[in-house]
């Protein structure tokens, strides 16, 4: 293109730019980097909490937040992959809890008989396998019967919870009954004054792996394409069902590994692990800038989203605020995030 026409293009542009254009610039930036707004919220939250409470911004407290985030963050990672395909998984935490009970109980066996259970090198893979199977079951229903993921996982949420309670006889398995290998991720090491658990490390490793896969492999690209428009993806020669199936399967694996982090964090295997983890995971994804309509978002954004949830819960607790205000704040954040996403998706450059 000649210099002259380029110049005229630019002057066209300046003709259009008025007071509206600054908002449009923000809009197009958020469009390209959806995690920017989440990062802003996170920084703002950290600043204001540390302003109100001097204990907030201490290495000890930040370490605690990171440990709390490890469960939500890991669940939200699997959730992100599914939401990117245009789906949703309401059963994510139920899969984790189910896996946790299977690993702990099959490893223990009958509590009154010494060394009754499976060896840990069997019990652990068994649990992960069941989690992957549960994810694949969701994927199977979504792809083969063309059921909406919301309905499918609402159903399997109840199924997995019921299976967990029936299998575990509703009984919790205590720390001293659990195989030490399952508690391995509760071990800590120190970086300066920061206390980091191996659970946090596992979560971060999973994030790194899937950030890479989504960004740099054709599988990742197909996940986005399917979430954008399944019909267009099919016509472009992508096996949509295979991509969806792999997404649910991979998410199941992640939820399985999350259960390992979970045991290490709460030091007990209980079927009564708060089931609101399901919704908190979705919250983290949405706050992290991933679109519930699919095809848009990053796992990096989700990590920020999970941190926001963690910071709010921790900060408001430290401030001694009524627990219900935490719920209120998270609720407002969700509405804000979705409104922003809807606005940003209308972008015209």
């Amino acid at each position: 293109m000649s210099k002259k026409s380029l110049k005229s293009k630019q002057s066209d542009h300046t003709e259009f730019s008025s007071s509206v254009s600054r908002i449009q610039i923000i809009q197009s930036y958020l469009h390209r980097y959806p995690w920017l707004s989440s990062a802003g919220v996170l920084i703002l939250a950290i600043l204001s909490f540390s302003f109100f409470n001097s204990n907030f911004l201490t290495p000890g407290n930040l370490s605690l937040i990171l440990q709390q985030v490890s469960i939500i963050g890991a669940l939200a990672l699997g959730q992100t992959i599914i939401i990117l395909t245009g789906g949703i998984d309401l059963s994510c935490a139920a899969i984790s809890v189910c896996c946790m009970m299977i690993m702990a109980k099959s490893g223990m066996g009958d509590p009154y008989i010494e060394n009754d259970g499976l060896a840990i090198w069997l019990a652990f893979p068994l649990g992960i396998f069941i989690a992957a199977l549960a994810g694949a079951f969701n994927g199977f229903l979504v792809t083969k019967f063309r059921l909406p993921p919301f309905i499918v996982t609402l159903g399997t949420l109840n199924i997995f919870i019921a299976i967990t309670i029936l299998y575990g006889s509703g009984r919790s398995i205590l720390e001293n009954e659990i195989d030490p290998f399952l508690l391995e991720l509760s071990n800590i090491f120190k970086i300066g004054e920061f206390v980091v658990t191996y659970g946090v490390i596992l979560m971060l490793l999973m994030y790194a792996f899937f950030a890479y896969s989504l960004r740099f492999t054709s599988w990742g690209r197909h996940v986005y394409a399917v979430g954008n428009d399944p019909e267009a993806a099919r016509l472009s020669g992508i096996s949509v069902d295979k991509v969806l199936m792999s997404a649910y399967l991979v998410a199941g694996l992640i939820f399985g590994l999350t259960s390992w982090i979970m045991i290490g964090r709460i030091m007990v295997a209980s079927p009564n692990v708060p089931s609101d983890y399901n919704l908190v995971a979705i919250t983290a994804v949405v706050i992290g800038g991933t679109s519930l309509f699919g095809g848009r978002g990053t796992v990096f954004g989700t990590l920020i989203g999970a941190c926001i949830v963690g910071v709010f819960q921790n900060g408001l607790t430290l401030a001694g605020v009524d627990l219900n205000f935490q719920v209120l704040a998270i609720g407002i954040l969700i509405i804000f995030a979705v409104t922003l996403d809807t606005w940003v998706r209308r972008v015209k450059v």
Binding site: R221, Y224, A225, N228, D229, E231, A232, A233, L235, S236, G295, R296
Partner: peptide
């Protein structure tokens, strides 16, 4: 195709 079969966000 008439629908173009493109992925808008890519």
């Amino acid at each position: 195709y008439q629908s173009l079969a493109v992925a808008p966000s890519l």
